[in-house]
């Protein structure tokens, strides 16, 4: 398999290999019927495994689709072909010798394992888009951007959390696909569910013993998570975010509710609802199916190998010097 995969770097047509799925009854957004998931030795649903959360479904619905939440089977197949063509076109664009880039395909970072879905967007519902920002949120963001303007390369503190290897936006919660290395591992012990995301090696340890959240004054970048079981679903409630987390421009009142349900031996359904009354007028929800993969998680040590950040600042200081010399 690997050789076939390798032969299809860049310009490949899409190859879909049908995994014989267990016959799934119609799924609702909130429950999966007629399939009993296995349990751990402790008697709770077994969500364990290593998964890819890569997806071809965009987070928000393309405008031209309006309120269409699902593609037909034929449309799904056509979209898969269109996706492949778009990917090839983008790869060709990226190979433009005048663009500063490295070759994603060379490192296999354009290969992924995904569950194909007939959804038109990860955001569910007739709108399929994230609600507009409230005026107070827009003002908040405008103020942030104004303060940053002209200072973006002053020092490391003005760079993004991801460039600084502090936290990557895919980690959330909610956990989104990062575009490559889209891998997570779930390990369960009595009273806990641990979720490790490969990028950037952060591990959420979620207690399911009913304890309260941290006190309000303790705020952390990835929030504070508490879980409980509802039937076969793990429900995770996360609060205590900092105002620097800024998931989709939200603030410290961000509140995330996630649901994880095993839907087959190889798939988990991941659903989340996000609310922040100071950012959006109403909560919004999305879902993605994760697919089990046969590899372990490999260490993604970020800080330790972060040559990029000092190079960026050094590049800027050099450019400033050049400008200063030119002005003389």
């Amino acid at each position: 398999m690997s050789q076939r995969v390798v032969a299809f770097l860049f310009f490949a047509a899409l190859i879909a290999v049908v995994l014989v799925p267990p016959p799934l009854a119609a799924q609702t957004a909130n429950a999966v019927k007629s399939w009993t998931p296995p349990k751990t030795a402790d008697g709770v649903p077994d969500l364990q495994g290593v998964y890819s959360n890569a997806t071809t479904v965009p987070l928000e619905r393309p405008k031209n689709l309006g309120s269409k939440e699902f593609y037909t089977e034929q449309e799904t197949a056509e979209k898969a072909k269109a996706d492949a063509a778009a990917a090839a076109a983008r790869a060709a664009r990226d190979a433009d010798p005048n663009t500063v880039h490295y070759d994603l395909g060379q490192f296999g970072l354009d290969q992924r394992v995904t569950a194909v879905s007939n959804r038109t967007s990860q955001v569910i519902g007739s709108e399929g888009t994230i609600p507009p920002l409230l005026p107070e949120a827009q003002a908040r963001i405008a103020a942030k951007n104004a303060a940053m303007r002209g200072h973006n390369f002053d020092d490391v503190q003005h760079r993004s959390l991801s460039e600084r290897c502090i936290m990557w936006p895919n980690e959330g919660p909610p956990m989104l696909s990062p575009g490559y290395n889209s891998d997570l591992q779930i390990v369960q012990g009595p009273g806990y569910v641990a979720i490790m995301q490969e990028m950037i090696h952060d591990t959420r340890i979620i207690p399911t013993d009913g304890r309260p959240h941290l006190p309000e004054n303790i705020r952390v970048l990835m929030g504070d998570s508490r879980g409980h079981w509802e039937g076969n679903t793990l429900v995770i409630d996360t609060t205590n975010f900092t105002d620097r987390t800024a998931f989709r421009n939200s603030g410290e009142n961000l509140h995330v509710i996630e649901r994880l349900t095993r839907t087959s031996d190889k798939t988990l359904l991941y659903q989340f609802t996000v609310d922040d009354p100071k950012t959006w007028a109403k909560p919004w929800s999305a879902e993605v199916t994760w697919v089990g993969i046969n590899n372990p998680i490999y260490e993604y040590a970020c800080q330790e190998g972060n040559y990029g950040l000092p190079n960026i600042l050094s590049g800027q200081r050099a450019a400033e010097k050049e400008q200063a010399n030119a002005a003389k």
């Binding site: 940053m148 002053d154 020092d155 490391v156 003005h158 620097r244 800024a246 050094s314 400033e320």
Partner: peptide, 17 residues
């Protein structure tokens, strides 16, 4: 050592990210 001359981390106005 790579910060812009004249700035310092405690007044660095990084309000975001």
């Amino acid at each position: 050592h790579l910060r812009k001359p004249g700035t310092d981390p405690y007044t660095s106005t990084n309000p975001n990210k």
